[in-house]
Amino acid sequence: MRLRADRPQRLATISYRAAAPGGGTEGARLAVERFRVDALPGGYDAIVAAGDLQGIAVSPLGGRPGLLGIAVADYLGVWADDGLLPPPDRVGVLLTGDLHSAPEADSRGASGPVGDMWLAFVAAGCPMVFGVAGSHDEVTTEQVGALGRDIALLKPRAPGLALCGHVSWSEPAARLGGGHVVNVDSRVAVFTAGPG
């Protein structure tokens, strides 16, 4: 996959709570942005990539606030119904780690289990969920493998399109050699094929 343009199109935002510097909780907004690429892996109409989802949000399906990534997984069906994304069974997912949050979103750098987040994307109907565990994520290869054969915990590699997180940039994409790097630090990037 190679980007056709550096500038994404804003599709939606999700309000959530995050740990504030120095303690406490603050409100934040997660950007959901579309990038056009030259091609997608066969069988997919979109790839959703996200990382550093260290916050707590309410799912669009209701219930108690939980991990932000679970809310993102629940939004996939809502966005498909609104015509913003293809149905979840046509969406692949790439998670770049650091997905855990303290239960009250009041402590920065909290570590904990994120297996339920991976499961939320599988439950949403996504046939492919790949990712890299971050330094705050407690998930094992065995836990991920139990979710199905198309679900995998990967080691980093250097394609025409690289993803990163944990870096605060004002712009979400930059040139990297002959390709691009897209920063998904506290951002959801949706890749679809088509003209820039």
Rank of each mutant, 00 (worst) to 15 (best):
L84Y: 08
L84W: 03
L84H: 11
P86Y: 07
P87W: 00
P87I: 00
P88L: 07
P88I: 05
D89A: 05
D89E: 12
R90N: 03
R90W: 03
V91T: 12
V91S: 09
G92T: 12
G92K: 14
V93K: 01
V93L: 07
L94P: 09
L94T: 05
L95R: 06
L95A: 06
L95T: 08
L95P: 09
T96A: 14
G97N: 11
G97R: 04
D98P: 08
D98C: 07
D98A: 11
L99P: 00
H100E: 09
H100R: 10
H100S: 11
A102C: 09
A102V: 00
P103H: 10
P103V: 04
E104M: 10
E104A: 14
D106W: 04
S107E: 15
S107Q: 13
S107T: 13
S107N: 08
R108H: 13
R108F: 03
G109D: 12
G109C: 12
G109K: 14
G109H: 04
A110P: 03
A110N: 06
A110M: 05
S111I: 11
S111L: 03
S111K: 13
S111A: 13
G112V: 08
G112S: 01
G112I: 04
P113A: 07
V114I: 11
G115Q: 13
G115W: 09
G115M: 13
D116W: 03
D116T: 09
M117Q: 15
M117N: 06
M117V: 11
M117G: 11
W118Q: 09
A120C: 13
A120D: 11
F121W: 02
F121T: 00
F121V: 07
F121S: 00
V122H: 05
A123L: 15
A123G: 12
A124L: 00
A124P: 11
A124T: 02
A124Q: 06
G125I: 01
G125H: 07
G125K: 05
C126S: 06
C126N: 03
C126I: 00
C126H: 05
P127S: 09
P127Q: 07
P127H: 04
F130P: 01
F130K: 13
F130I: 03
V132Y: 10
A133F: 13
A133T: 06
A133I: 08
G134W: 02
G134S: 10
G134L: 08
G134H: 03
S135V: 05
H136E: 08
D137K: 07
D137S: 06
E138K: 08
E138S: 15
V139W: 04
V139G: 04
V139C: 08
T140M: 10
T140Y: 15
T141M: 01
T141S: 15
T141W: 11
T141D: 15
T141K: 15
E142Y: 03
E142G: 06
E142R: 14
Q143G: 06
Q143D: 12
V144M: 01
G145A: 15
G145I: 01
G145P: 04
G145Y: 07
A146F: 02
A146W: 02
L147C: 14
L147F: 15
L147T: 01
L147G: 09
G148H: 11
G148K: 03
G148W: 02
R149N: 12
R149F: 09
D150N: 12
I151G: 02
I151W: 01
I151V: 14
I151N: 01
I151D: 02
A152T: 10
